[in-house]
Lab assay of single mutants.
Amino acid sequence: MRKLSDELLIESYFKATEMNLNRDFIELIENEIKRRSLGHIISV
């Protein structure tokens, strides 16, 4: 996760939620978004 750019991480989050991927996977992405202080972009 740390090698993904912020932009790609956010894009991955939206794609994963759109495709209804595994909730655990989405939570991993959400946690990384929060760690990077980007939660305001997706309202996490």
Results as ranks from 00 to 15, higher is better:
L38C: 03
S5A: 05
I10L: 11
L8N: 09
L4F: 09
R2S: 15
R36W: 02
E11N: 08
E30H: 08
R23Q: 09
E11F: 14
D24A: 13
E18I: 10
N20C: 08
R35N: 05
S12H: 12
K15H: 13
R36E: 00
L4T: 03
E27K: 12
D6I: 08
E27C: 09
V44Q: 14
R2G: 11
S5P: 08
F14K: 11
E18P: 02
N20I: 05
E30K: 13
R23S: 09
R36A: 00
I41Q: 07
T17C: 10
H40Y: 12
K34S: 06
L4W: 15
L38K: 02
S5T: 11
E32I: 02
S12C: 14
F14M: 10
M1K: 02
Y13R: 01
D24Y: 11
I26D: 01
K3G: 14
V44M: 14
M19W: 05
A16H: 05
E18D: 07
E27N: 10
T17N: 09
L8T: 10
E27M: 14
D24I: 11
I10A: 03
L4G: 01
L38W: 02
I29G: 00
D24N: 10
N31V: 10
Y13L: 04
S37K: 14
K15Q: 09
R36Y: 01
E27L: 13
R23E: 05
D6Y: 08
I42A: 04
D6S: 05
L8D: 15
G39S: 14
K15G: 05
I29M: 09
M1L: 15
I29W: 03
M1P: 04
M1I: 15
E18G: 10
I26G: 01
E7I: 10
L9W: 01
L8P: 01
E30I: 15
I33Q: 00
L4I: 06
I42Y: 02
M1W: 10
Y13C: 02
V44R: 12
L8E: 15
I42H: 04
L9I: 04
S43R: 12
K3T: 14
L9C: 01
D6E: 04
G39I: 10
I10R: 03
K34N: 10
E7M: 11
E30W: 15
S5Y: 03
E30D: 03
I33H: 00
L38E: 01
A16M: 05
K3I: 07
L8C: 13
S37Y: 11
I10Q: 02
N31D: 09
L9M: 02
N31T: 12
M1E: 02
I26Y: 03
I42E: 03
L9F: 02
F14G: 03
L4M: 14
G39E: 11
R35L: 06
F25D: 06
R2T: 14
L38F: 04
E18A: 15
L9Y: 01
K3F: 10
I29P: 00
E11W: 15
T17V: 15
H40F: 12
I42T: 05
I42Q: 03
F14Y: 13
F25Y: 14
H40K: 06
R35K: 05
E32Q: 01
I41M: 14
E32D: 01
K3A: 12
I26T: 03
D24P: 07
L4Q: 04
E7H: 11
F14C: 07
F14W: 13
I29Y: 08
I41A: 11
L28F: 05
L8M: 12
K34R: 14
S37W: 08
V44H: 13
E30A: 12
H40T: 06
K34L: 12
L4E: 02
I42W: 02
S43L: 12
I33F: 05
Y13A: 01
E11H: 12
E27V: 12
E30S: 09
N31C: 08
Y13P: 00
N22P: 14
S12D: 03
M1D: 02
S12E: 12
D24T: 12
R2H: 13
V44C: 08
S37P: 02
K34M: 12
R36H: 01
I10K: 03
N31M: 13
E27T: 12
D6V: 06
Y13N: 00
E7W: 13
K15I: 11
N31S: 11
T17Q: 14
E32R: 01
I29A: 02
D6T: 09
E27Y: 09
N22I: 06
K34E: 07
K3L: 12
S12F: 15
N20A: 10
N20G: 14
L38I: 05
I29C: 04
G39P: 05
F25H: 06
L28E: 08
R35C: 03
E7G: 07
K34G: 04
S12Q: 14
S5N: 05
R2E: 14
